[in-house]
């Protein structure tokens, strides 16, 4: 299934784009997507997942219009045409 992934803040520089379309297996979860991104952007994997390949706890994630906690990534099933926005932590002051 096709999804749209939007990158915010410093993630845009890390992955080199503001958004992209991703292909994820039918029934795939948010955790699956983050692991796929970690593999695709290997050097930047720590933005998406921890060393244990769990969703990065401090990554803010919005699926369509709902915030999803990283801890719920494994149980959040994604659907065709979902828009997943990834907001890395920022503290510019």
């Amino acid at each position: 299934m096709k999804l749209r992934v939007q990158y915010m803040a410093q993630l845009r520089a890390v992955v080199g784009r503001a958004e992209e379309e991703m292909e994820l297996s039918e029934g795939g979860s948010l955790a699956d997507l983050l692991n796929q991104l970690a593999t695709t952007y290997g050097a930047a994997s720590s933005h998406f997942v921890t060393e244990a390949r769990q969703a990065r706890p401090s990554l803010l994630i919005v699926v369509n219009d709902s915030a999803v906690s990283a801890r719920d990534a494994a149980t959040t099933v994604l659907h065709t045409n979902d828009v997943v926005t990834l907001l890395p932590p920022i503290a510019g002051g």
Partner: peptide
Amino acid sequence: LYPEPPPNWKREF
């Protein structure tokens, strides 16, 4: 929102 100190944040932005 941030249950861990974010590891990738850099002080200059």
